[in-house]
Design a protein around this nucleic acid. Structure first.
Lengths: 203, 203
DNA sequence: ACCTGAACACCGTTCAAGT
DNA sequence: ACCTGAACACCGTTCAAGT
């Protein structure tokens, strides 16, 4: 029994790549990116400290993979919201909430996505990426008269700024514990959308 | 000559504490907080690797000192803006610009101020701190009729969110190179202040 | 696609003993 | 308020040789 157990435990059966990423997310969430240690991950997964190098060239490649995964998931979440064909005000609000919710639910992903050091690309600016979705939303909002006229780019940046700002404040604990933080973020987004709508109809 | 040079170089004459902080800021700006190494700082300053410990209990104490310095400087910069007794719209705009400018000019400070890991306090919430200044500005804005009515706290959080969001995007290079980034931030802040003013007078 | 095991140059931090 | 120097347990990363 002991022998069988040992010989079976010698190899990691399953998706080590996945397991390394998941363990890294847990570690980052607890101790921050700075404290991430590949050797510690390997220890926790009971594989040799060299095994992770089968899947990631180095520590930065692991972080890049996490960032990639984060951007893909974020776009999915944004696409899952209410369609822009209906109530545009609501759609814009829910998009913002979904953005912050993603950050709150995946703080390690979000941190890595916007961390420096790796000089990573900017998948937000990718065609079909999050920024594209935002630009479309802004255009619809202007057509529907719930966003003020003016350069779409400026408005899109303002919206992203609010979402990103709230996301960072939320995962840094500046908006209180997780459930309250999301409610506060929602209220702030709603205030912003309302303000923009009022300004749009004012002239 | 060689002897004299060696014996004089043996000690660090001057403010080692200051020198360590400055060297840390340079290192963080270049390689990020994660890559900061006390031993490397000591080497660069030509002191023993143990000397910095005279001034900082550990690495985290050094980061805490940097964060402290950052919060103090930020408050100074915000206080240096145009007074709230005059053109409130302009004062609010310049406050926001000063906030982002601080981040752009002191990216390492700003990063450390909002970095996790150290579980630091929140000097923003300190009496007389940055958040107090913001709350006062919001109150004046409402009195002057350039900010919409409503809970001051919600408006203050929205303003902080925009400033913090722009600051983070700027130092992460998402707004382009430094000079352009500040201009973009200014335009975004102006758009937000204008929108709020229009919404305030709409009803 | 994993393993063991050795190796290298680096860390943060502590200690002991100096000036 | 600094120094030298040794020490400890840790890192990321590379290599060699296995299954």
């Amino acid at each position: 029994m002991a022998v069988r157990k040992k010989s079976r435990a010698a190899y990691h059966h399953g998706d080590l790549r996945r397991a390394v990423i998941d363990a890294a997310l847990v570690a980052i969430e607890r101790d921050g990116i700075a404290a991430l240690s590949l050797r510690e991950l390997a220890r926790k997964l009971a594989v040799s400290h060299q095994a992770p190098y089968r899947h990631f060239a180095d520590k930065d490649a692991l972080l890049a993979a996490i960032a990639d995964e984060g951007f893909r998931t974020l776009v999915q979440r944004l696409r899952a919201g209410p369609p822009l064909t209906g109530d545009v005000t609501r759609a814009l609000t829910e998009s913002g909430v979904a953005y912050v919710r993603f950050a709150v639910e995946h703080p390690a992903h979000y941190r890595v996505m916007f961390a420096t050091g790796g000089e990573r690309r900017d998948p937000l600016a990718t065609p079909g990426g999050a920024y594209d979705l935002l630009a479309t939303g802004v255009a619809r909002g202007q057509e529907a008269g719930v966003l003020p006229a003016g350069p779409k780019q400026e408005l899109a940046l303002l919206c992203w700024t609010v979402a990103h700002g709230l996301a960072m404040l939320a995962i840094d604990g500046k908006l209180g514990p997780a459930p309250a933080a999301l409610a506060t973020a929602r209220a702030t987004i709603a205030l912003q959308v309302r303000t923009l709508a009022v300004a749009a109809t004012a002239r």
